[in-house]
Simulated assay, not measured.
Amino acid sequence: MLKVLIVIMLFISIFSLFRALMAMTKDDKQQQMTRNLGRRVLFSALTLVLIVLALSMGWIEPNPRPY
């Protein structure tokens, strides 16, 4: 369940990034692009905090051998 939540948050972050790209190419209001980029940064930071919290609480385990 936690991994699904992390993936959903990353997809929301990517979606916000593409919405900001569309706002930038259409020359719409600058505020809309800034809001979308702010959401992207917020969801990326929340995802990182969630991953670090889950690792410290033992909810997820890192890969013991990364290669």
Rank of each mutant, 00 (worst) to 15 (best):
L2D: 05
L2Q: 08
L2F: 11
L2V: 04
K3E: 11
K3V: 10
V4M: 15
V4I: 13
V4K: 13
L5P: 03
I6Q: 02
I6G: 00
I6Y: 02
V7F: 13
V7Y: 09
I8E: 11
I8H: 12
M9L: 14
L10I: 05
F11K: 14
F11E: 14
F11P: 00
I12A: 05
I12G: 01
S13C: 12
S13T: 05
S13P: 05
F15I: 13
F15M: 15
F15N: 12
F15S: 15
F15V: 12
S16C: 12
S16D: 09
S16L: 03
F18P: 02
F18E: 00
F18N: 00
A20K: 00
A20W: 03
L21P: 03
L21D: 05
L21M: 11
L21E: 06
M22Y: 15
A23F: 11
A23S: 07
M24W: 10
T25I: 09
K26L: 13
K26M: 10
K26Q: 09
K26R: 07
K26T: 06
D27S: 10
D27Y: 07
D27Q: 11
D27E: 13
D27H: 09
D28P: 02
K29C: 12
K29F: 10
Q30M: 08
Q31K: 10
Q31G: 06
Q31N: 10
Q31M: 11
Q32V: 06
Q32H: 04
Q32A: 07
M33N: 06
M33G: 06
M33K: 06
M33E: 10
M33P: 04
T34P: 02
T34R: 11
T34Q: 14
R35E: 04
N36F: 15
N36D: 14
N36E: 13
L37T: 01
L37F: 04
L37A: 02
L37K: 00
L37E: 04
G38Y: 07
G38I: 05
R39Q: 13
R39K: 09
R40I: 03
R40S: 15
V41T: 10
V41L: 13
L42A: 06
L42K: 05
L42Y: 04
L42M: 09
L42T: 10
F43E: 03
F43G: 01
S44F: 00
L46M: 11
L46N: 01
L46T: 01
T47S: 11
T47M: 07
L48P: 04
V49C: 09
L50D: 00
I51D: 00
I51C: 02
I51G: 01
V52Y: 14
V52M: 15
V52S: 10
V52D: 13
L53E: 06
L53R: 01
A54F: 01
A54P: 01
A54V: 00
A54D: 02
A54N: 00
A54E: 02
A54T: 00
S56G: 05
M57S: 10
G58L: 04
G58S: 00
W59I: 02
I60A: 08
I60M: 04
E61W: 08
E61M: 15
E61H: 14
E61Y: 14
P62N: 03
P62S: 03
N63G: 01
N63R: 12
N63F: 15
N63W: 15
P64L: 04
P64G: 03
P64Q: 03
P64F: 07
R65G: 08
R65I: 14
P66F: 15
Y67M: 09
